Simulated scan of single mutants.
Amino acid sequence: MRARVACSALLLCGVATSARADDAGRRWSGDLTLASQYVSRGFQQSWGRPALQGGLDCATPQGWFAGTWASGVSPRFVEGGRMEWDLYAGYAGSHDALDYRAALYHYRYPGARISATGTPYDYGEAILGAGWHGWSLDYSVTWTRDYFGFNSRTLGIGERMHSRGSTYLDLKRRIDLGHRYGLTLHYGWQRVNHFRDYGWRDASVALARGFGGFDATLAYARGWNGAGVYRAYSTGVADSNGRLHVSNPIAGTWYFTVGRSF
């Protein structure tokens, strides 16, 4: 899970105007961000604690791109994990006011595994997206056997079912407010294949401003799950003090980020 899917592709569409080129015509760009917490698709993945995030992208003038991005996460949200590490590659282009993109993503959580079943959290998605006059729409489909470790063994539902084919719809509206301010409105819908009760919807609003080469964002996000399966979320594993940490990771929350692109 991550929040950077749509904005990464949009950034790469325009990277040729801002990044340096090497002898092969490739374009490089990167970013480094400090977040008060890591919130992705409505989920508080760092359990309300600060997270350091950063990425590096490479694109060609023909529209092909590849990159990597990472963020700190909490082992209270991902059992045994402290980092999300994303790898991606694809193609982005534009025609008049329309931009479009297609990419493959693989999300890794090094060292993280659901100990009761030995299931990793790692998963992959194929993503198609388009943007037009400040609107963007991205559609993601899980191509790996499981989405974020969801299967019959980990959830205790059915027999030998996996969550390949899970989908996420990401709709955004970006509004330029002038004076280096920008507003982003987001709505998302996650469907977990074969496990309907574990799907959710999420929304967020974010106000951003650029200053002195940095970008600062204040945002509010929350999610909704009709079955209530996330109200008392836990990995089920106690910490070193024997305490079991329980929370609602999709409850409404504010967070703040400061970052710099290069």
Rank of each mutant, 00 (worst) to 15 (best):
G182S: 14
G158A: 13
Q190A: 10
T184G: 02
H179F: 01
M161G: 03
G165N: 05
H194P: 02
G188P: 03
R173H: 07
L171Q: 05
E159N: 13
R191S: 10
L169E: 05
R191D: 09
G182M: 09
L155F: 04
R180E: 14
L185A: 03
S163R: 12
H162A: 11
K172P: 00
N193I: 09
D170E: 13
H186P: 00
R191N: 10
V192N: 03
N193M: 08
I175Y: 05
H162L: 07
G156M: 07
N193F: 04
D146T: 08
L171F: 02
L183K: 11
T167Q: 13
L171M: 10
S163A: 14
L185G: 02
I157H: 01
D170L: 03
R180C: 04
Y147D: 01
H194C: 06
G158T: 15
L155I: 11
G149Y: 13
G158D: 12
T167N: 10
R174G: 06
L155Y: 08
V192Q: 05
H162P: 01
Y181H: 15
N151L: 11
R173N: 01
T154I: 12
R174P: 00
M161F: 01
R174M: 08
V192P: 00
D146N: 15
R191G: 04
R174W: 00
F148E: 05
S166L: 07
L169M: 13
G188R: 07
H179G: 13
N151Q: 12
G149E: 15
D170H: 06
I157K: 04
E159C: 09
D176A: 15
W189M: 07
R180H: 13
T184S: 08
H194Q: 13
D176C: 04
L155N: 00
N193K: 14
R174K: 06
D176P: 01
F150E: 02
F148T: 00
G165K: 12
T184D: 06
S152E: 02
S152L: 08
Y181G: 05
S166R: 08
G182Q: 13
E159S: 15
G165I: 11
D176K: 02
F148R: 04
G165P: 02
N151R: 12
S152K: 07
